[in-house]
Amino acid sequence: MKQARERREDQPAFVLHAHPYRETSLIVEALTADYGRVALVARGAKRPRSELRGVLQAFQPLTLSWAGAGEIKTLTRAEWRGGLPLVAGSALLCGFYLNELLLKMLPREDAHPQLFRDYQSTLSKLAAGAEQAPALRQFEVQLLAQLGYALPLTHEVDSGLPVDPGARYYYAFDRGPRTLASEPERRYPLVRGTTLLALAQQDFSAPDAAVEAKRLMREVLDHYLERRTIFSRRVVRDIQALDEIADEDDDS
């Protein structure tokens, strides 16, 4: 069946990633407010004097217009919307991580207006220099919720009882926290009640809550990512390793 040709004008959007296409063009993966993730060909965007060159950058609010019928549409206009400072320094790597999650988890052309707002507000926090880990955890929870995998965090799956901050639970993927007794196979990540509640309330002030929340979210995300790995995590690890190697050289 032939898809109807569509034309969209001036849609709020963010570029997630762009890769070269043919000689002078780019394929841009963008997150839009009302049409979800869309793939657009930016014709001539790689030419030296193309006006699109500087505009099609990630982490900046844009308005995009496009037309076309297939899975990949043609970008007809891109404008810088502004209002957000540049994401800088180590926050850039957080930004790449958000974009990688969206590219790997969000199917194309599934509209999630709330996710778009969540993404924009996460970027604003990162650009403003807010603490990065809580901002990332919050977005991970929001992303899963928008994709239909909302995480039960406050009540036990089996009994429906509220999570006890002092107890430990197995976090069963797709289901939620289970007491140690109800999960004899121990297949799932072990997590403290305080960490679950920290994620639910987005308050990571309790000792070790941030570290444990990061680990839990990583395992939960890996479950939904199946075999796709998140390369941004490796980059962070490799940079830390490099810092340590250089330190050893200093000492010698």
């Binding site: 997630l16 790449f96 990688e100 390369f231 941004s232 980059v235 490799d238 940079i239 490099l242």
Partner: peptide
């Protein structure tokens, strides 16, 4: 460029 699979090892930051 993490989204293109390029990390510190690939550009030989060491």
């Amino acid at each position: 460029s993490p989204l293109d699979g390029i990390g510190p090892k690939e550009i030989r930051l060491d």
